[in-house]
Design a protein around this nucleic acid. Structure first.
Lengths: 192, 192
DNA sequence: AGGCAATCTAGCCATTGGCAAGTTCCGGCT
DNA sequence: AGCCGGAACTTGCCAATGGCTAGATTGCCT
């Protein structure tokens, strides 16, 4: 008898997986992945401490699921990009809009490397990365696209990383980070 | 009586602080900062589990000390740089030679932000960063040095980060990462 | 209606970080 | 020399965590 009147929660949560994910993203965004506590997530969702394990095997499983989701979101964002600079802007925007995903996606030591969902999602996003570089620089046919890709990715990734870790606060000031990135991009890739 | 003949360790370690630091750098370099266990470090050094706390208040204190040391090392490395591209190369080289330091230095959530040693060491390295940019680009007088600094730092930091997190393995292959970075730099900063 | 599998709970264990109180030792001062 | 203050280290403790196992509950499918 669920005693549904007031306060009493039903035995089955209904959407625990998503609830845990939401809480995890929230916690990671504010305190980083290291501070993530499965038991705390369970408490927030109002379930027992062992409940999360049923949806994500372990801590690593949870982080892996987040990383996979992140790669999917990133791939979608990059797919709409028009030109290399725009792809970079979208990369940075993704990092700002999904800081928790971003902080987890590129940390192999936190992830279950063999995971299928992760592998396929990662393949998607890398493919978009590659696409953005190869299709968008017809005028620079002489340069190695592989090298250009490394350069563009390093630049965007570095900016996003430094931004999220608040290491650019002093330099960017109150300007819009996205705009700063855009102008910096024009400095490095004077194609536009 | 220390019973110095065989096996028996003296009550005082002699150089515990350094021993703990060495062990910590080792552990972080292989498993990342999240996997760091104070008790494990104590075991490795052959002391009790509470001994480390005497030299570094807590986990945060240890990581803060490492970060401060790292900023000092980075500042020293950058001080010898000749030109912006060379500074970038040295930045990447520093990350490869001191991966543990590098992985900790730019993670505020792991550090005691008020710490004096950290603050001063960080001031040193940022100053060298700024120097490398402002002094090395006389021909591009028109461009905002602040923006050029962001661009250069983002690029170098991104490359170093992606390299350490093994996200460039597939792209760099068996080439020398430093050489790859150098040629990528020439692509972005066609001054050389 | 019956049963099965997914979902969730309860309890246990090893490990960890951090704190407090006690012990050993070094070094300086008289 | 003797002593004494403080630094270096230890032992013991507590709360919290991740992960495992066994058991309870429930929705769903036939």
């Amino acid at each position: 008898m669920p005693e549904n009147s007031t306060g009493e929660r039903p035995y089955h949560h209904g959407d625990l997986r998503r609830a845990i994910l939401r809480a995890a993203l929230d916690a990671i965004a504010t305190d980083g992945p290291s501070a993530l506590s499965l038991r705390d997530l369970a408490r927030r969702a109002g379930v027992s401490h062992a409940a999360p394990a049923h949806h994500f095997k372990d801590r690593t499983g949870l982080l892996t699921a987040i990383a996979a989701e992140g790669h999917g979101l990133l791939a979608a964002a990059l797919a709409e990009a028009e030109g290399l600079p725009d792809a970079g802007v979208r990369y940075v925007r993704f990092a700002r809009e999904h800081p928790a995903h971003f902080q987890v996606m590129f940390r192999p030591e936190l992830l279950r490397e063999g995971d299928l969902e992760l592998t396929t999602a990662r393949a998607l996003s890398s493919e978009q990365l590659r696409m953005a570089v190869t299709t968008a620089r017809p005028e620079a046919a002489g340069t190695d696209p592989r090298l250009a890709g490394i350069a563009a990715w390093s630049f965007s990734h570095g900016f996003a990383t430094l931004l999220l870790s608040r290491n650019l606060d002093g330099v960017v000031g109150d300007q819009d980070p996205e705009e700063v990135f855009r102008t910096a991009t024009e400095l490095l890739f004077p194609s536009a």
